[in-house]
Write a protein that binds this DNA or RNA. Structure first.
Lengths: 187, 187
DNA sequence: ATTACTATTAGGACCTAGTCATAAAACGGA
DNA sequence: TCCGTTTTATGACTAGGTCCTAATAGTAAT
């Protein structure tokens, strides 16, 4: 008996975790026990009732959509911006940025941070990346903080603005990119 | 009177749209009418009750988290993959990929498609981008379909695997990238 | 076998945030 | 004043619970 209860409760916790939209009644029939047992189980494991669970999931969704919009313009947080001269942004590497297998940040996130900063630093209606050379000098791990510094370096032979972005973790260079930017005044 | 009702209902629709976590009671006090009036309003505008609204939001969140995980590994949809040889993926450019100002896709999304495809084509535990040269040959617009083709081109002088990715819209080249990939067998 | 204890089940009162139906009251315009 | 719309009130009922009390089942030790 001691085992049965513990086992059931452990299964219950997992089941509710990945199927939160389930009533006590359904759980009761699924485990072949009474509703009251399920409710005791939830009480002991302090699992909130269905409606609260649904609300929690919805709340999370809401928070995300609210903050997702402003965040998209520039990847990372801009902490300094001098138009047509330089800019700095910070990106904290979290679970969503890394390969689950080895906790190393996917390259395209570092690229995105640098490239969007290069776009932002240009004081023009339209700024598009024409081409770029980039180097990933060392892997970036989960929870590291990447500081990207962009400098406008002048124009190339095709009249494109050159922006160089160096990204650091501490004082180690992790990424370098030279972006040749097309801008609307080029036409 | 005719105006009052219509006005209230229009405000109600908007209010619930961006504040779905609100009870009829709160709405009633907010509009200075009785709960029954609010309920009639919801009935006429066929707005579901609070609990249903919460459930809808939660359901959306759930659908997204479920599909977000597998989708994140490779940006775009892989339609062909021969390990250590070649791969093809498709990315349909939607609102979330473009600058709202000019409907042109942000460069980092094209980079992400290409780079993650370059990672995927390598038949190894660990594959990281060491450096790359890339060109954006023409802007990609909203609703265009980008087809990325990756080919493994051999190894460079530092024993890094070279993957070239060409991305097309129709038969126009829109992006080219040469990725030098570090892989675990390199150690 | 009896006792002790845990685990399970049952029941009833109460809660929130509603639905649905019916009826009464208030208001505005001709 | 009467008509039609709008608003409010009331009551019965619902889902999916909480909280509390009490009875029953199952197991282990004395």
């Amino acid at each position: 008996m001691k085992r049965k209860k513990k086992e059931r409760q452990e299964q219950l916790v997992k089941l509710i975790e990945d199927t939160p939209f389930i009533t006590d009644e359904d759980l009761a029939t699924k485990f072949g026990v009474s509703i009251q047992t399920i409710r005791l189980d939830r009480l002991e494991r302090s699992i909130p009732e269905l409606r609260e669970r649904i609300k929690d999931v919805a709340q999370k969704q809401w928070d995300e959509t609210v903050k997702a919009l402003p965040l998209e313009e520039v990847i990372g947080e801009v902490i300094n911006l001098e138009l047509d001269h330089s800019a700095i942004s910070i990106l904290d590497i979290s679970e969503e940025h890394v390969f689950s297998r080895n906790q190393i940040a996917r390259g395209h996130h570092l690229f995105a941070q640098a490239n969007s900063l290069a776009v932002a630093v240009i004081d023009d209606e339209l700024a598009l990346t024409a081409n770029s050379e980039i180097r990933f000098t060392r892997p970036v791990k989960l929870h590291e903080r990447v500081i990207a510094k962009a400098y406008v370096k002048g124009v190339d032979d095709k009249e494109r603005t050159i922006v160089e972005v160096s990204s650091y973790v501490g004082n180690e260079l992790v990424f370098f990119g030279r972006f040749h930017m097309f801008r609307s005044t080029d036409e």
